[in-house]
């Protein structure tokens, strides 16, 4: 039942021989050791498993590997690393938008997706863009502040 699936993961070409019915989430976590993408419900209701495919946020728990062939996937591991944080990561730390951290990877990717297409979103647009990412710790206020802060950081840099 296994098939060869080729795709670009965090900028690198990957070729895997996997069962195409398995979810991207499980393959990232179990086969590729990329555990930054989280499983909060495994049925598309929480957004913790959010990754970007071709720049768009999707639930990796609802995406079979068969759909990934030829795609470009970005996970939290590809956003930035501790020595070179992405401005969103920097902003989340500075503003205090991280508490337990479980929603954070998915939240950051949803935030990246909005800033990529809308560099200076309004408060309402930011809230709308992360409405698919549940957070039980922060009450969202500081997450929204962090995304605004990152938008300004990014604008200052470009």
């Amino acid at each position: 039942m296994k098939q060869e699936i080729r795709f670009i993961l965090n900028g690198e070409h990957v070729s895997l021989n996997v069962d195409p019915s398995r979810t991207l989430l499980d393959v990232l976590r179990e086969d590729l050791g990329l555990t930054g993408t989280k499983k909060g419900c495994d049925e598309g209701d929480c957004g913790a498993c959010t990754v970007l495919i071709a720049g768009k946020p999707i639930n990796s728990c609802l995406t079979p590997m068969g759909k990934i062939n030829g795609q470009e996937v970005l996970t939290i591991e590809g956003l930035g690393d501790p020595e070179q944080l992405h401005p969103l990561q920097e902003a989340f730390l500075k503003v205090g938008a991280v508490q337990c951290g479980y929603c954070t990877p998915g939240m950051l990717l949803s935030a990246k997706a909005i800033l990529d297409i809308n560099p200076q979103p309004t408060e309402a647009e930011i809230r709308d863009s992360i409405a698919g990412n549940l957070c039980r710790c922060t009450g969202y206020t500081k997450i929204v502040e962090a995304i605004k802060y990152a938008a300004n950081l990014l604008e200052g840099r470009s």
Binding site: L85, Q89, L93
Partner: peptide, 22 residues
């Protein structure tokens, strides 16, 4: 002081290890 979290970097980079990551 408004100090950032000690463990913040591992959380924003996806490196933090929760139980199912082990």
């Amino acid at each position: 002081q408004n100090l950032p979290r000690l463990e913040g970097k591992e959380k924003v980079t996806g490196q933090a290890k929760y139980i199912d990551d082990l």
